[in-house]
């Protein structure tokens, strides 16, 4: 019962990965570390202050969800390039219980335990590309992209 978030257009662009890194998220301190690392990378890529804030806020929402619902997860970041465009790709991957109703979460109908739907749906709005795959076997993987 794998479901697709639907908004995959932004991922059809072939990209070159310039550098990458990983942050494991198992605690609240790790959420902070993930935010700090995402901020440093986004600033280095040359995002505006507002875009850096959008990116770091999205990282905060998605890493907190991983910690809350799956306890353990990984954030991978990649500095990406397509032609003259530079951007960041972030993958949030966990082996948790998965999300029963992905479409519902994206419509922000789920507001239990502090509003996962709000965080996920809000993050989608903050980014240029957003993709979610979730099922009970493999957990949840959310990939986002933002271009400068």
């Amino acid at each position: 019962m794998s479901e697709d978030g639907g908004q995959t257009d932004a991922f059809e662009t072939a990209v070159t990965v310039l550098q990458s890194g990983t942050v494991r998220v198992r605690s609240e301190d790790d959420i902070l570390l993930a935010r700090q690392e995402a901020r440093a990378v986004a600033e280095e890529i040359g995002f505006s202050t507002t875009d850096v804030t959008r990116i770091v806020t999205g990282v905060s929402e998605l890493t907190r969800n991983m910690h809350l619902y799956a306890e353990d997860g990984i954030m991978k970041w990649r500095e990406i390039e397509a032609g003259t465009d530079r951007g960041i790709e972030l993958v949030f991957d966990d082996d948790g219980p998965g999300i029963d109703d992905v479409e519902g979460v994206l419509r922000a109908e789920h507001s239990t335990s502090g509003g996962m739907g709000r965080g996920v749906q809000g993050t989608k709005k903050l980014m240029d590309g957003f993709d979610i795959t979730s099922n009970p076997e493999d957990g949840t993987t959310i990939t986002v992209r933002k271009w400068t």
């Binding site: 507002t50 804030t53 959008r54 922000a108 709000r118 809000g122 709005k125």
Partner: peptide, 14 residues
């Protein structure tokens, strides 16, 4: 509230 924070908060819907 910083401008970038206000913009992001408005977009997030709170």
């Amino acid at each position: 509230m910083r401008p970038s924070v206000a913009i992001t908060a408005a977009e997030l819907g709170f």
